[in-house]
């Protein structure tokens, strides 16, 4: 009961999805299923919220090292959630001024907008920009001509880096038009069009097969690790 029914549910749901692809009247089911997934994922966020509360409340009550930061997280979480769910400071839709809940939840000037604009965007964008530094350190540390494969990797990166900035135009701008393929931008184009295309394609074909077999294992109940695979 605890294990068999879920496996049956998974198998039936999955097979219906496969069949729906070939049967035109059922084609909408696939979109519906995707929507249902999104609803479930949104509802599951309550579980995530509970996990956040449990983890940080425990850290605070245990007075673990750094529990003050847990407090920051919890307060930030609580404020954002209440401001957002209650649409604090959000004006109603201009056409329906009598219905206070009609406004867009993230309106310019509203508290949630402020939080998004001045807390979330700067921190996440800066985290994202840390990549520029890590890319540099990886180039220094990992791009070493240890063997033939590594030489190919770093050689390609070298050419494309040059070919895609002003340096490429500057260095090989003198090459006559008829030998354009030998300029840095030209070589970049060949790399992108031939080897990059071929490599990407082979990876994609392999991935498609990998996904197909993983999916099949789930549908047949062979892979049930998501339910715990052994008794």
């Amino acid at each position: 009961m605890k294990r068999t029914i879920p496996i049956i549910i998974a198998a039936v749901a999955g097979l219906v999805m496969v069949v729906a692809f070939f049967v035109p009247p059922l084609i909408d089911w696939r979109e519906t299923a995707e929507e249902w997934f999104n609803i479930l994922a949104a509802v599951a966020m309550i579980l995530g919220g509970a996990s956040i509360l449990a983890m940080h409340l425990r850290r605070i009550s245990d007075q673990k090292r750094g529990w003050g930061f847990s407090l920051v997280t919890l307060i930030a979480f609580a404020i954002t959630l209440s401001v957002g769910l209650f649409k604090v400071g959000v004006p109603p839709m201009a056409e329906y001024p009598d219905r206070p809940w009609t406004g867009e939840y993230i309106t310019h000037g509203a508290p949630l907008w402020w939080i998004f604009q001045y807390l979330i965007v700067p921190i996440t964008a800066t985290m994202f920009s840390l990549l520029a530094f890590f890319v540099a350190s990886a180039a220094f540390r990992a791009f070493r001509a240890k063997n033939a494969e590594a030489v190919l990797l770093l050689g390609t990166a070298f050419i494309v880096l040059l070919g895609r900035s002003y340096a490429g135009t500057l260095l090989t701008g003198w090459v006559p038009e008829s030998y354009a393929a030998l300029t840095l931008p030209g070589m970049t184009d060949t790399i992108m069009g031939v080897f990059n295309t071929a490599g990407q394609r082979a990876i994609m074909i392999g991935i498609a097969l990998g996904i197909a077999s993983t999916s099949l294992k789930i549908l047949l109940g062979i892979d049930r690790s998501y339910l715990g695979n052994r008794h």
Binding site: T73, L74, F77, G84, I120, T124
Partner: peptide
């Protein structure tokens, strides 16, 4: 810790 709390709540609101 700020971004963890704020963004989790924000995406729940969304």
């Amino acid at each position: 810790s700020l971004v963890v709390g704020v963004s989790a709540a924000y995406l729940m609101v969304v």
